[in-house]
Simulated assay, not measured.
Amino acid sequence: MALLHAYLNFNGNCEEAFDFYKTVFNSPLTGVYRFGDMPADPEHPVADADKNKVMHTSLKINDSVMLMGSDCLESFGQKATYGTGSYLMLDTQTAAEAQDLYNKLSVDALNIEMPLGEQFFAEIFASFQDKYGVAWMIHFEGNKKMG
Rank of each mutant, 00 (worst) to 15 (best):
K22V: 07
P39N: 06
S127L: 03
S64T: 15
V134D: 03
T30N: 14
S27T: 09
Y7S: 15
Q119W: 04
T23C: 00
Y82H: 15
G117I: 11
D108M: 00
D48L: 03
Y82W: 11
T81C: 14
D100P: 04
I61S: 04
F25Q: 11
A40C: 00
A126V: 07
E113M: 12
E118I: 09
Q93G: 15
R34A: 14
K53V: 10
D63I: 10
A109M: 05
S86A: 11
N111W: 10
E113I: 12
P45H: 05
M114G: 08
L67G: 02
F128E: 01
A126G: 07
K22P: 00
A109Q: 01
E97F: 00
Q78I: 05
G85H: 04
D100A: 05
Y33I: 14
Q119C: 03
W136T: 14
K144M: 12
E123H: 05
V107G: 01
E43Q: 14
A122E: 03
Q93P: 13
F10I: 05
L88R: 01
G12H: 09
V46P: 02
T94Q: 11
K144I: 08
K145A: 13
G36D: 02
L105E: 03
G142T: 07
Y33G: 14
P45M: 10
V65N: 14
M146T: 12
N9S: 12
A47S: 13
F18K: 06
V107H: 01
